[in-house]
Lab assay of single mutants.
Amino acid sequence: GKMTGIVKWFNADKGFAFITPDDGSKDVFVHFSAIQNDGYKSLDEGQKVSFTIESGAKGPAAGNVTSL
């Protein structure tokens, strides 16, 4: 299901971020390909987002990341 959280930090050079979920679970890795914005895919620290949890090769990662 959809979860919500806050972007903890975003590394534009490497194209990934971490989200701190609102439910208090541990921070979730985000690859820029999961960001659903049109055009430039970036996130801002402190931004509120919704996302799903996908199981990636290196463990859980956020999918369908959308700005709220």
Results as ranks from 00 to 15, higher is better:
P21W: 03
A61R: 12
A61W: 06
G24A: 02
E45V: 14
N11H: 06
D22P: 01
G39E: 11
S25F: 03
T4W: 06
S42I: 09
A61T: 13
V28M: 09
M3F: 07
D44Q: 14
G59N: 11
A17Y: 09
V65K: 15
D27P: 09
F10Q: 03
K8Y: 02
M3C: 07
G1M: 10
G59Q: 11
G63R: 07
G63S: 11
V49W: 00
Q36F: 10
G39P: 08
F29P: 01
F18G: 03
I19H: 00
G46L: 03
D23M: 02
G59C: 15
I35Q: 03
T4C: 13
F18N: 03
F29H: 06
S55T: 13
D44T: 13
N64D: 13
I19C: 01
K41Y: 10
G59E: 12
I6R: 08
F18M: 13
S25C: 05
G1Y: 08
L68Y: 01
A34N: 11
K48E: 05
G5C: 02
T66I: 15
Q36G: 08
D13T: 09
F51T: 00
I53K: 05
D22I: 06
Q47D: 09
S55P: 11
V28W: 04
K58H: 15
F29T: 05
G1Q: 12
A57N: 12
S33N: 07
K2Q: 12
F18H: 06
D38K: 06
S67A: 05
F16V: 14
V49D: 01
W9L: 04
S67W: 02
V30P: 01
S33Q: 06
K8V: 07
G59V: 11
F18W: 14
I35K: 01
H31L: 10
E54A: 06
G39Y: 07
K14G: 08
D44H: 15
D44E: 14
A57E: 14
G56P: 12
F16H: 06
G59F: 07
V49S: 00
D38S: 10
E45Y: 12
S33I: 04
Y40V: 10
A12R: 11
W9N: 04
F32T: 07
L68G: 15
F32V: 13
K48A: 07
Q36E: 11
G39N: 08
A34M: 14
V30E: 01
M3A: 05
I6D: 01
F29G: 02
A57P: 13
N64P: 09
A17F: 14
L43R: 01
G46Q: 02
T52K: 05
D38W: 10
A17T: 01
D38H: 08
A34T: 09
G15K: 06
D13Q: 08
T4L: 05
K26N: 08
A34E: 11
V65D: 15
I19R: 00
W9H: 05
S67F: 03
I6V: 13
Y40E: 13
T4E: 04
I6L: 05
S67Q: 13
S25V: 02
N37V: 12
I53H: 06
T4D: 02
A17S: 01
K58L: 11
F51H: 00
G39T: 06
A57K: 07
N64M: 09
V7H: 00
P60D: 14
D38I: 10
N64Q: 08
S50I: 13
A61Y: 13
K41I: 13
G46D: 02
S33F: 05
D44I: 14
V28R: 05
D38G: 11
V28S: 01
G63V: 15
G1P: 09
K58Y: 11
G39H: 13
A61H: 11
F18P: 00
T66N: 15
T20V: 08
F18E: 03
K8W: 02
G39W: 07
L43C: 05
D13Y: 06
E54M: 09
A62Y: 07
L43P: 03
T4R: 05
V30C: 05
D27T: 05
H31V: 06
V7L: 10
Q36S: 09
Q47V: 09
V30K: 01
G56A: 11
G39I: 08
H31E: 10
K8L: 07
